[in-house]
Structure formats: C-alpha cells, structure tokens
C-alpha cells in the first residue's frame, strides 16, 4: 500500500474508534473525561516505558489503561469527598499530566517520546514504524494497534449493547436490576483509555478529544435511535479524518489540526441543518410543530 493510503487508513481507524466511543461519552455526560484521560495516558505511557524500557504498543496500552483507571478512580474519590465534579476532573488530570511531563523531561530524554509529539501527534511518521505480520506483510505498528483497539471497542459495544444503553440512560434502574453499573463504568474508562492511546500516535492528546466528542455530538443532533447514532458518529469520524488529511495537504498544514477542524465543520453543519434540533428546521417547521403539540 502507498504511503498516503496507510495514513488515510490510520486516520479512518482513529475516526471510527473515537466516533463509536464518543457516543457513550456524550450520552453518559462525560465529555470532559475524554479531555482528562487523553492527557493522563501520557503518564501511563511514560511509566510503562520507564518500567520496561520499551516503547511498544502492547506496553503502552497496558500503561494507558492503568493511567485511565487511576484518573477515573481519583476523580470519583474526590467527588465523593465533596469536591465539585468539574474541579476534581481539572485537578486530577493536570496533576497526573504534569507528572508525566516531568518524568519525560528528567528520566527519558529520548527522541521517541517528547511532549510536543504527545500533544499534537504526527500521523506522517506512522508508516515508518512497521511490523511484519504473517500473510499480510509489513503494516505500520500504529495502524495494527488501532485495528486491534477498534475490534475490541466494536465487540464490547455490540456484546453489551443493552447494558451500555441502560447504564447510560438510567443507572439507578440498572443497578436495581443487578447490572454492575460500577464495573461497566470502569470498563468504559478502560475502553476510552485504549482508544485514546491508540489514537495518540496519530493525532495526539489534544486532537483526540475533538475526534472523541465532536462527531458524536454532531450525530446526536441527527437521530433519535442509539444504533443510528453509533453509525453516524463513526461515519462522521471517518469522514472528518479523511477530509482533514486532504485539507492539510491542500493548505500544507498540520494534519491532526485539520482533522479536528473538519469535525468542527461537521458539527456546525449538523447544528444548522439537522431535522430535529437544527436552527434552520426550527424556523422552517414551526407551524407543523405547533400543530403536533396542540393535538396531544
């Protein structure tokens, strides 16, 4: 496969996995957790590197899951102790991220792991680090990890679809039915962590937030069905990722920045044009809505 094709495939995988996870983030009203975990996984990666002295995908994933779980446990703990919800998110993730930054600066000193790379990502480097697979041949490591993560995310969402739905919509009822709401919460935090760290290499910590939140927020405006929302959000993610690549090569600018910009455009268009919540339909269909209300 050509250099461009690998980048597009990697970008599309980021868009798809982030788009799917983003739906649950939005519906569980945890969008800011994406911001938190996208930063604290850096600490997980650094610690995994310091422990194993290897920068392989496998170690990074485990480090990220541990960092992600630590983040959500600390946030929950502070909240249960009476710290305001958003303040506890802000305190925890900036502190853990800072520890990660300090460790990089003082302990690592390695060209493969620097703060700018972690924040902005560099998808153009992705095709250069390859691994050889039987039957398939050489494949960029980041692309392979993203594929594996996407598989895990899709299987987890489909297998536990109704459990995700009920714990997102009505956790009290779910708990009264004996569904382990807290286990589901931490399982979701783990999925979010592995998605973030897999997307990290390609788009960086800041842009991964855009890929997680914006396509899902746009999809939310278009549909009243959860399954459709998953499909739309994944589609918006892929579309934004691919469009972002071409915008970047057209303007000769940052690829991850362009991808995030593309998600913003998708959201803006959805906000203006969606049939149910959009600004335009609000003006066009006011008489029909009034009629429907009076019939009730």
């Amino acid at each position: 496969m050509s250099y461009t094709a690998w980048i597009l495939l990697t970008a599309a995988l980021v868009g798809l996995s982030c788009g799917m996870i983003g739906v649950l983030l939005i519906l569980r009203r945890m969008a800011m957790m994406a911001d938190a975990i996208s930063h604290t996984v850096l600490l997980g990666i650094v610690v995994a590197f310091l422990v194993t002295r290897e920068l392989s995908g496998y170690h990074m994933l485990i480090g990220a899951v541990i960092a992600g779980l630590l983040t959500s446990v600390l946030i929950q703990w502070l909240q249960s102790r009476g710290v305001q919800g958003e303040a506890s998110i802000g305190v925890v993730f900036t502190t853990l991220f800072a520890v990660g930054v300090i460790l990089i600066a003082t302990q690592v000193g390695n060209a493969h792991l620097d703060v700018k790379h972690a924040l902005m990502g560099e998808i153009t480097f992705v095709p250069w680090t390859t691994v050889r697979l039987p039957w398939i041949g050489d494949i960029p490591e980041a692309t392979l990890i993203l594929s594996a993560v996407l598989l895990i995310v899709v299987v987890a969402i489909i297998a536990f679809y109704k459990e995700w739905k009920i714990t997102s919509f009505d956790p009290a009822l779910a708990a009264s039915l004996g569904i382990p709401v807290i286990v589901m919460h931490y399982a979701f935090m783990s999925l979010l962590s592995i998605t973030t760290v897999a997307a990290f290499d390609a788009v960086g910590a800041i842009m991964v937030v855009a890929m997680l939140i914006t396509p899902a927020a746009a999809a939310y405006l278009w549909t009243d069905r959860l399954s459709v929302m998953f499909g739309l959000s994944g589609g918006f993610g892929v579309g934004s990722a691919v469009a972002g690549y071409y915008i970047a090569s057209w303007l000769d600018t940052s690829i991850s920045g362009s991808m995030a910009f593309a998600t913003g455009v998708v959201f803006l268009l959805s906000f203006l044009m969606s049939p149910k919540h959009g600004l335009i339909s609000r003006y066009v269909t006011v008489p029909a809505r009034k009629k429907a209300t009076s019939e009730r």
């Binding site: 009505d170 009822l173 549909t223 009243d224 069905r225 459709v228 929302m229």
Partner: peptide, 13 residues
C-alpha cells in the same frame, strides 16, 4: 436517543 417502547423494554433486561 430512544423511544417509549425501548424504555419499557429496559425493565426486562
């Protein structure tokens, strides 16, 4: 994003 029937179904999960 769900409808009335779906919410009732949750009682059967």
């Amino acid at each position: 994003p769900t409808d009335a029937l779906d919410v009732v179904l949750m009682g059967l999960y």
